[in-house]
Each structure stands twice: as structure tokens, then as C-alpha cells.
Amino acid sequence: MSTVACDTQSESLDDTIAFIDAIRERVGRVVVGQDVVVERLLIALFTSGHILLQGVPGIAKTLLASTLSKAIHLQFSRIQFTIDLLPSDILGSEILDQQSGTFRTHQGPIFTNLLLADEINRAAPKVQSAMLEAMQERKVTIGNTAYPLPTPFLVIATQNPVEQSGTFELPEAQLDRFMLLHRLTYPEPEHEREILRRNMSLGIRREGDGAVARSEFDAIGDEPVGDADMLVEAMHAVHAVHVSGTFLEHVIEIVDRTRHHPDLELGCSPRAGIAMIKAARARALIHGRNYVTPEDLYSLAEDVILHRIRPNYEALAEGRTASTALEEILSEVSA
């Protein structure tokens, strides 16, 4: 990973970059070969966005979120979404206290810094909708009282691209709430070799009179590499990253092309452009720059744009997908 500081970086910027490197190094100690995912998680964390991870089970999504939360000393909750889940199971509810005869507010697991919403597409639409509203407004109303969610607040949702029976696909309007949708793939053979090697060396952990096999979760260090203040500092640094007029034109052009591409029936909303600028700023900072470049744009285009566009029937009938349309948009030279 690049930590080359540009000429105009301040000492504060150097500290932030060192903080980011420390997080990546800590996560990398536990999770192998997921550098890009870690980068995307940090982008979402630094820009107050939310991220949807799409991938098959068993590729360390939960481990990743757990490691990240411990690295920055953040509260972490995990919700396994199922068909019978209710909005109150996530948001919380008012409970009648029988001793005092009054209602007491019970805050749900959404009141955390880092929320892993596992298999979000398995929940009923009303639950998805309730959570996505909370993500957007960053507050939850229980009874007649609105409760702000803790800051920072990052939702890492996952969905499984296979086993689609009994799932409720997130509609485009709700997908748009996710700043990034990252598609996870299986690790490369050398990374898989390292995963197995590390797992073999984990050993046994004594618990009371018995013992259990240690898992990767036991390898997560409890000592955080930073705190909320450093995270706030990083968020300030992201906000200070320079965005040139030329870069803005690139973003405007690409977003506009998605709205006129013949293979697409739904193009990007203005939220996509905003997300692209925010994500590009965070990526630039993670890569040690205080300005964004077209490399950030091309690197993030798939994660920022692909879930916001929808191919039309004619394109699908001819075997063209949103992905091919996006590649055409990015490869097109001029308007």
C-alpha cells in the first residue's frame, strides 16, 4: 500500500495516514487478502457512508467488521436478518415496567458504532425499510421520542448472491442509500494458503475445565490502534482533500452517461455523484494524497455506480449487463 506523502501534506495529515496504515496493518494481521475490502470499509467509515458487501458465505465478512471495530475501539453489533425479524427487534421498543407501571425504552442493536447486518435481503421489506431509514436519518424514533444514533455509525450489510429463494431483493431506491456495494470474491490461492497456514497454528484455548479450538476471532488484538478522536481527525482530513474542477467534470460526465446509455433504463441519481466525490476523497487520503485523481474514479466506479444503474430488457435479452454498460461508459472518450 502506498503511503507516499505529497509535498503539501501537513504533520496532521501524516498522523492520519499513519493511523490508516496502522488500521490496515492490524486488520491484515487477522484477515488475509482483503486489502480492497478494508479500503472500502475505511472509505465508508471516514465519509459516514454505509457499505453493502455481496459475497458467498465464509469469506471473513464478520471477522473483518469485528476486527475493524476493535482496531478503532468502536462498539460492534451483529444482526442476522431472517424472515421473521421485526423492526422493533432492530430499532428497539417501549417495554412496560410492571414495578413502576411506566414504559421504559429498550434500545435495539442498531444503537452501535459498527453494525453488521448479515444477509439483509433475508428480512421482510418493512424491516429493511426501517433500518435503511435509520441509516439515512441517523436517528431512531421509539414511541414518541427520537433517539440519535451513536457517532460514528457505519452499517456493513451483507447479501448472498446465491440462494435467492426466500429473499427480498433490495429495491434500487434502497440500494441507493448504500454508498458502496463491494463484490467480494474468493481469495487468491496464495492468500488461501496463508489463511490455512494461520488457521493451523491457532491451537487450543482453555475455558474453565474444558477447552475449545481457537478461531480467527481469538487472534484479534484487543489493543486498539486508534480512538474516536483519531477517527474524527481522519474524517476532517478526508473533507480537506482537494477535488479539482477537472475531476468534477469527469464525475458529471460519467453520471450523465449512465442516464443516456441505450442499455440502461435507470441511471445514477445525484446521490451517486456525491458518493463518488466523497469516496474518491477518502481513497485519495488512504493512498497518501491530498487531492483526488482519475485513478480514484476508475477504481471506485464499480462499487459506487454499478448498484445504482439497471439494464433494460433489450440489453438483458442480448446478454448485456449493467457491468458491460458501465465499462462502455468508462471507456468512452468523449461526450
Binding site: G245, T246, H250, E253, A301, A335
Partner: peptide
């Protein structure tokens, strides 16, 4: 600014084609 952005895209496309990367993903 829009023309400068187009110039940058054209120069990238020029080198992309020159290196035989027309079929490769943009990133």
C-alpha cells in the same frame, strides 16, 4: 474545465490503446 477533462480522457485512451488495453477493465 470540461474540455480539459476530455483531453485527459483522450490521453488516457491513447495510452490504453497504445498498450493494447482496450479490452481490459478501465480500472
Amino acid at each position: 474545465q470540461p474540455e480539459l477533462a476530455e483531453l485527459e480522457r483522450v490521453l488516457f485512451a491513447f495510452w490504453r490503446h497504445r498498450l493494447g488495453l482496450d479490452e481490459a477493465p478501465a480500472a
